[in-house]
Amino acid sequence: MSSDLFYALTGASLFTLGLYALIKHAHILRKILAINVMGSGVFLLLVALAAGGQQAFDPVPHAMVITGIVVAISATALALALMLRLREASGLAVLPDTSPEELSEQLPEAPSDVASKNNGKNA
């Protein structure tokens, strides 16, 4: 197993792990973290695969990764800002239409009135 392939597989695993976390966790902060993990995975993959090419040095993937990181940073910033606003407005940093079970699973401190409020919205 060449190191390139190893990095590539690691990147893919990071992506998958992030995806899992993104789906599983209710709290938005965790989702944002998961997205970042996924992003890192992709970047890793990009660089690793580029290195495995025939050319000794290919600047393009690096340029891509750098661009990607810039994009990821701004996205994360926006996401965090939004999350804070949402928490300010609703008192909880979870997406709407989240089921109460998920809420209680993820946020043991979740006040019951919020759960019932969400419940009511679903109905």
Partner: peptide, 15 residues
Amino acid sequence: ENGFRRWAVGASLFL
């Protein structure tokens, strides 16, 4: 439609 709106369901569908 309510099911689709739940993030876990929607994202799983994506997968």
